[in-house]
Amino acid sequence: MAADTPDAAADSGFGRVSRTKDVAFRLLALAATLVGIVSLAVLLANVAVDSIGWLDWQFLTSPPHPNPYEAGFLPALIGSIAIMLLIALITFPLGVGAAVYLEEYASDGYLTKFIQLNIANLAGVPSVVYGLLGLGLFVSLLNLGYGTVFVAAFTVALLILPIVIISAQEAIRAVPDSQRQASYGMGATKWQTIRNVVLPRAMPGIMTGTILALGRAIGETAPLIMIAAPTTVFGVPNSLFSKVSAMPLQIYNWASYPETEFQYGVVAAGVVTLLVVLLTINSIAIIIRNRYQQRT
């Protein structure tokens, strides 16, 4: 019994050190989380306080105006929503289709690896480069007009498309291969297996990646500036080829005004509106994602 005492003491000491490190790491992780959450909460609270008295129905339903007390956000609000809806219609089928091909159909050869490498690199390209691409491709080459809904949506869609593809690939890759084999064993074809087995189980992950990508897209300004989207428009876009502004551009324009009312009150009201629209779009996407999770 005496010979076991040093080993037991060593094990006990090791256990105490491990528990101490575990507690310390847990507290460090909690502190890191609280720093981010508290900083964001303080920032949002400050903006929300500044927007009091400015964010009202008149602000949401009126066009911009040089008088801060009559300034409205309607054209930029409708423009951003139209751009986001068109972006979602473009990126979701293209991104998921590309991910399905790369994961389920493409052979594991040099060409596929080259494509994968380029998609990963494109996900990290600065947004201003995509703005130049949109300017050269959609405006100069295809002559679709400066700052239209169509050009703005396709330019920003190119920006987030690699992110959607990568997230969709990861979600498809996470589906157990045994489920595919079970589907094949029951006589299903490859497309039937993808449609009935792979995509339903991968859809929550695909939706999560798409939500994050759309959240980035709604706040982008550099690509819109490069395609000459106006910072201020006074009418609601009525077609895909109408001139369009977006909420970030309008907020940026107001912030450049010398009046204090614009720099604080009107800008804060625009920021709160932008956050509400972003959270609403994300909430709708999350509800759709959760329904897919319940089905699977």
Rank of each mutant, 00 (worst) to 15 (best):
residue 260 T to G: 08
residue 168 A to Q: 04
residue 259 E to M: 13
residue 62 S to L: 05
residue 65 H to Q: 11
residue 62 S to M: 05
residue 165 I to V: 15
residue 288 I to E: 04
residue 66 P to K: 11
residue 51 S to K: 09
residue 274 L to E: 01
residue 81 I to S: 06
residue 215 G to M: 09
residue 126 P to G: 12
residue 176 P to W: 13
residue 105 Y to D: 04
residue 9 A to M: 15
residue 236 V to S: 08
residue 171 A to I: 07
residue 141 L to M: 14
residue 205 G to T: 08
residue 30 L to N: 03
residue 100 V to F: 04
residue 294 Q to W: 01
residue 205 G to D: 07
residue 128 V to A: 10
residue 279 L to I: 15
residue 140 S to C: 00
residue 294 Q to S: 06
residue 64 P to S: 07
residue 39 S to M: 15
residue 85 L to R: 02
residue 272 V to Q: 07
residue 105 Y to W: 12
residue 112 T to Q: 15
residue 225 I to D: 02
residue 136 G to C: 10
residue 166 I to C: 02
residue 129 V to L: 14
residue 240 L to S: 02
residue 69 Y to C: 01
residue 157 A to W: 01
residue 86 L to V: 15
residue 173 R to H: 08
residue 247 M to V: 10
residue 149 V to G: 01
residue 86 L to M: 15
residue 244 V to Q: 00
residue 124 G to R: 11
residue 39 S to H: 01
residue 84 M to V: 08
residue 15 G to I: 11
residue 58 Q to S: 14
residue 235 G to I: 12
residue 107 S to W: 01
residue 189 T to G: 12
residue 269 A to H: 03
residue 4 D to R: 13
residue 218 I to Q: 01
residue 63 P to M: 09
residue 186 M to W: 03
residue 32 A to P: 00
residue 296 T to C: 07
residue 25 F to Q: 13
residue 8 A to D: 06
residue 72 G to N: 07
residue 189 T to N: 08
residue 139 V to Q: 06
residue 74 L to N: 00
residue 103 E to P: 03
residue 252 Y to A: 14
residue 38 V to P: 08
residue 161 L to S: 02
residue 153 A to P: 06
residue 132 L to A: 09
residue 149 V to Q: 04
residue 188 A to Q: 10
residue 16 R to S: 14
residue 226 M to C: 02
residue 26 R to E: 10
residue 29 A to Q: 07
residue 136 G to K: 11
residue 65 H to G: 06
residue 33 T to R: 09
residue 77 L to F: 14
residue 251 I to P: 02
residue 23 V to I: 13
residue 176 P to F: 12
residue 31 A to V: 15
residue 71 A to P: 00
residue 281 I to K: 02
residue 159 L to V: 09
residue 295 R to D: 07
residue 62 S to D: 00
residue 95 G to F: 05
residue 147 G to A: 05
residue 174 A to P: 03
residue 227 I to Y: 00
residue 17 V to D: 07
residue 254 W to G: 02
residue 94 L to Y: 00
residue 222 A to P: 03
residue 187 G to N: 12
residue 41 A to F: 11
residue 286 I to F: 04
residue 29 A to N: 09
residue 56 D to H: 10
residue 143 N to K: 15
residue 221 T to G: 01
residue 85 L to F: 12
residue 221 T to H: 01
residue 103 E to Y: 05
residue 73 F to Q: 09
residue 141 L to K: 07
residue 52 I to S: 07
residue 201 R to A: 09
residue 42 V to C: 10
residue 279 L to D: 01
residue 64 P to A: 10
residue 148 T to H: 02
residue 60 L to I: 08
residue 20 T to W: 09
residue 286 I to P: 00
residue 136 G to T: 11
residue 48 A to I: 11
residue 35 V to M: 14
residue 47 V to I: 15
residue 284 I to H: 02
residue 146 Y to I: 08
residue 169 Q to F: 07
residue 9 A to C: 06
residue 31 A to R: 11
residue 40 L to T: 12
residue 194 I to G: 01
residue 284 I to F: 10
residue 16 R to Q: 14
residue 29 A to D: 03
residue 201 R to M: 13
residue 229 A to W: 03
residue 209 G to M: 05
residue 271 V to A: 15
residue 137 L to C: 04
residue 149 V to E: 03
